[in-house]
Computed example of a mutant assay.
Amino acid sequence: MMNGMSVIDLNADLGEEIGDDAAMLAVVTSANIACGFHAGNPTVLAATCRAAAANGVRIGAQVSYPDRSGFGRRFIDMAFDDLVADVVYQIGALSALAHAAGSAVTYVKPHGALYNTVVHHERQAAAVVEAVRSVDAGLAVMGLPGSQVLHDAAAAGLPTITEAFADRGYRPDGTLVARTEPGALVTDSTDVAARVVQMVTTGTVVAVDGSTIDVAAQSICLHGDTPGAVAHAHAVRRALADAGVEVRAPAQA
């Protein structure tokens, strides 16, 4: 299935103090910057916002469960009002840091376990959307195509950004293979680049069972904390250029 896309956004999770943010900012067009709940501190996040602004990279708030010890990768069964307040708090904090850096937060992307939870969890998806809407109805929500959170965001009138993952394995149903399971990560730069070109030019990817599934997306995530992340990122940019694909942030955000 050709999707006719000749433009794609590349995003990466930054401000987490575990990857080479400077190198990634030279490649990506969107930065999902941590908000302090799973990683980062005010000084680090301020510097990351400044670096993103200097590179002309748009800023997104990477919101998470309050779980620094687990890096936000453990599900927390939070009360609706608590999750709304936590997400509002994180967006507000990063927005202030971005403003101080001469930029602005233009979208919100849940991190880790929260990202995976709001694919199907109606109450937590609704809480994330309520938080974003209450802060700024012009903020976009980034998430997995077909996810509950994007459905709710669209229904609330929020802009949405569909996302695919360059280096993560997919199940046949379009969800991500859990990091604890075989096939969760793609580790070869050539394979990562080829997958991204397939995603962008055909809107498909090969799942872990060998089937071809739809993954039409406006943005591709390059994880900055995986082994070989910078090499993956450069390989992806070269492969996209060779395929005639322009890399830039979506106009609506």
Score class of each variant (00 low, 15 high):
156 A>I: 06
148 Q>F: 02
135 V>Q: 06
55 N>L: 11
43 T>I: 14
145 P>G: 07
113 A>Y: 04
142 M>H: 07
68 R>L: 14
164 A>P: 03
171 R>Q: 14
161 I>D: 00
217 A>F: 00
217 A>V: 01
233 A>D: 00
62 Q>Y: 02
99 H>F: 11
29 T>K: 15
2 M>L: 15
245 V>P: 05
74 R>Q: 14
215 V>M: 01
117 T>G: 12
240 L>H: 02
127 A>E: 09
172 P>D: 05
87 V>A: 12
28 V>T: 06
158 L>S: 01
84 V>R: 03
68 R>A: 09
80 F>D: 14
253 A>S: 15
74 R>M: 12
117 T>R: 13
210 G>C: 12
140 A>K: 06
181 E>W: 01
22 A>T: 09
206 V>S: 04
79 A>Q: 15
47 A>K: 11
166 A>F: 12
71 F>P: 00
78 M>A: 11
32 N>P: 11
227 P>T: 11
81 D>V: 12
104 A>K: 13
23 A>M: 03
248 R>C: 13
10 L>G: 03
216 A>K: 10
31 A>S: 08
96 A>Y: 07
225 D>E: 10
186 V>C: 02
188 D>Y: 05
73 R>P: 03
97 L>I: 10
40 G>S: 09
56 G>F: 09
147 S>Q: 03
248 R>T: 14
73 R>Y: 12
247 V>H: 15
104 A>E: 09
74 R>A: 09
70 G>L: 06
147 S>A: 14
7 V>S: 14
176 L>V: 11
155 A>S: 15
57 V>R: 02
5 M>F: 15
85 A>K: 08
183 G>P: 01
159 P>C: 04
13 D>C: 03
184 A>I: 00
125 A>L: 09
3 N>H: 14
113 A>E: 07
161 I>Y: 00
81 D>A: 08
166 A>G: 14
22 A>R: 11
6 S>D: 15
194 A>K: 07
113 A>G: 07
116 N>P: 11
99 H>C: 13
158 L>I: 05
230 V>C: 08
198 Q>K: 11
217 A>W: 00
145 P>C: 05
190 T>C: 08
19 G>W: 06
35 C>W: 00
